[in-house]
């Protein structure tokens, strides 16, 4: 096997290694992304909101 072939084989092994080791890296990134997009839902009360007069109404 000549030098060129050796380089090609090594490149493919490198590519395969990157592909195999890249999988956990990718899932870790997805997890990190999920952690960063945790949402906080807020509601700012309006001055004319009259919560006391609100009634619970059951609808059919």
């Amino acid at each position: 096997m000549n030098k060129k072939s050796m380089i090609a084989v090594l490149l493919i092994i490198l590519l395969a290694t990157i592909s195999v080791l890249g999988l956990p890296f990718m899932t870790h990134k997805i997890e990190q992304h999920a952690e960063t997009i945790m949402q906080t839902v807020t509601a700012t009360p309006q001055p004319n909101d009259d919560y006391d007069s609100m009634e619970y109404i059951e609808t059919q």
Partner: peptide, 28 residues
Amino acid sequence: LITLVVILLSVSLCLYYFVAKETDRLIQ
């Protein structure tokens, strides 16, 4: 070598897509 590269890229692409989708689904 050429066939190996093609297979490696194709299988990697499919697996990456599947794992990413499944990971996202489990988290959601």
